[in-house]
Design a protein around this nucleic acid. Structure first.
Length: 488
RNA sequence: GGCGCCGUACCCAAGUGGCUAAGGGAAGGGUCUGCAAAACCCUCAUUCAGCGGUUCGAAUCCGCUCGGCGCCUCCA
């Protein structure tokens, strides 16, 4: 069950081909590092995939990378390269790149790195817009042939008047009304209707350009997703996802193009992830509350799993106010899973005799977590059930071998569903801590000696010293371990 | 002007007609510990922004008021 943005109601997601989900999720434009708001949206897609897989479905999951810098749709076509990527190239961070292509590659690679750090499943296909130029040109030609598009001196435009359903997703049916409200709309006199949108822009000065039947230029923003989605998933998708801002115009335009082309529904269901706010305000660089994944993970030593936990802790359909406190809360929760992993690993090798006292309870909790995810991805409840499971595991003084097997199964299944127990990819889990491990070991040895000699003042002194450096000690009968605490 | 969301304990937050209003964090008490930390156990909303209404019954439905927020051709 998912909340479908098109019908504005809860609808059951039923794949056209039983047990095989065809899913497209709009990816980022790679002109900068992706921020945590971007990732809330991609995390939603990830959870859809994981939930479908938990059901035993096969999932064809396509998530694109937009590596073409698009102009504002209504800007004049002579925009002198003033698109997002060109602007990024001219910015301070962009100076190190030789050209826009290098810039796009760099940020695309960084994006995939962050993606894996946050434990997102790799899509079946991660197509790039620049690698599907021919298909885009062909699609535009077809739209012209079918009378849904026309050429002007500045480009090729989709004729909105030719598609009666335009506005069915966003509710923006009254174009005059829309025009009245929108400020700063630059009119292009060559367009037949203000709402017509570009399929192809003629521009011989653009930093990225391709040759087409209409001369040199570049494709409109919306056409790439239509083309790539249909190329890999067929004419009708089961589900299409994206951020709430994409509902209009991007997805509205995708529908118009795709359905004009095929005469078939473009997607059965649509879901849109609400925007993330930070410290009560919209994220903005000027407000100082703008965070990329690497800002938090590298700059603040945040555990990537904790960040993932925090970002999925509120269901995708609700507004979410991200704060540093939320991240700290998430850290202690993620720590619980880690403790369980250690405890279970130890119990597995100990193979103590005894009954499986916790198996049925854990299985029930997993079922409840899955049921919550099936209910419009209710991550709050799913996470609560997962946490209750850790309590069940941790409250046992000693896990029997049978209990350990059950606990392991629970952790594996929870991790497959929510991705919060352990890292799944080979990507570096976190940055190598900038600490001198040998020195810490030496101090721990000294402290152990001090403790043995009842010199507790010295022992506590060492503990305080390390604590000041963000290193937390834990004494146990087996000895002392240490770990680096995040500084968020 | 159009479309839409939210207001639940100190904080985050689930619950959308009916058993004791999930879960986490913080806080307080206890077990453990040389002392801590971590872990575990216990405590922590007669009440769901306010006011009316519908109903045998509402945090949940309807209306109004107050407060906060998002999207509307750059944006996840």
């Amino acid at each position: 069950m998912l909340y479908d943005t098109m019908s504005k109601s809860m609808r059951e997601l039923v794949p056209q081909e039983p047990g095989h989900l065809k899913f497209y999720s709009c990816g980022p434009t790679v002109y900068s590092y992706a921020h945590i708001g971007n990732f809330r949206t991609f995390l939603t897609a990830d959870l859809v995939v994981r939930t479908a897989e938990a059901l035993g479905w096969q999932v064809s999951y396509v998530s694109n990378i937009t590596d073409v810098g698009h102009l504002t749709e209504d800007s004049l076509a002579d925009a002198e390269g003033e698109d997002k990527m060109a602007r990024a190239l001219q910015s301070k961070e962009g100076e190190r790149f030789a050209n826009v292509w290098d810039l796009a590659d760099h940020y695309a690679d960084a994006f995939v790195e962050d993606w894996r750090r946050l434990n997102l499943r790799d899509p079946s296909v991660r197509p790039k817009a620049t690698q599907h130029m021919r298909e885009q040109i062909v699609a535009v030609q077809e739209l012209i042939a079918k009378g849904h598009a026309y050429e002007t001196p500045t480009g090729v435009y989709f004729n909105v008047a030719s598609f009666a359903d335009y506005g069915k997703l966003s509710g923006n049916r009254d174009q005059d009304d829309l025009m009245r409200a929108v400020r700063d709309v630059v009119q292009d006199d060559n367009k037949r209707h203000p709402a017509d949108f570009a399929l192809w822009k003629k521009d011989e000065k653009h930093l990225m350009q391709w040759f087409s039947p209409w001369g040199w230029g570049f494709p409109g923003w919306h056409i790439e997703c239509s083309v790539m989605a249909m190329r890999y998933l067929g004419e009708t998708l089961d589900l299409h996802a994206g951020g709430e801002d994409l509902r209009f115009p991007h997805h509205e335009c995708e529908i118009a193009q795709s359905e004009a082309l095929t005469g078939k529904p473009f997607s059965k269901l649509w879901i849109h992830t609400r925007f993330l706010q930070v410290e009560g305000e919209k994220m903005a660089k000027s407000k100082g509350n703008f965070f990329t994944v690497r800002d938090l993970v590298e700059g603040k030593n945040a555990d990537p799993l904790a960040l993932r936990y925090a970002l999925i802790s509120v269901p995708y359909g609700k507004p979410y106010n991200f704060t540093m406190q939320t991240l700290r809360d998430a850290s202690s929760n993620v720590e619980r899973f880690r403790l369980c992993e250690e405890k279970v690993a130890a119990a597995l090798s100990a193979t103590r005799p005894g009954d499986d006292a916790i198996g049925p309870e854990l299985d029930a909790l997993y079922d409840e977590a899955l049921a919550a995810m099936l209910n419009d991805l209710n991550t709050s409840v799913a996470l609560a059930k997962a946490l209750e499971g850790t309590r069940v595991i941790l409250r046992e003084a000693e896990l029997s071998g049978a209990c350990a097997d059950s606990a392991q199964r629970f952790l594996d299944r929870i991790n497959a569903l929510l991705g919060i127990v352990r890292h799944e990819s080979d990507a570096p889990a976190s940055n190598s801590p900038k600490v001198d491990e040998a020195r810490i070991e030496a101090l721990l040895a000294e402290r152990a000696a001090a403790k043995a000699g009842k010199d507790f003042a010295r022992a506590d002194g060492i503990r305080d010293q390390l604590a000041a450096e963000g290193i937390e000690l834990r004494d146990s009968p087996e000895g002392t371990t240490w770990r680096l605490k995040g500084v968020v």
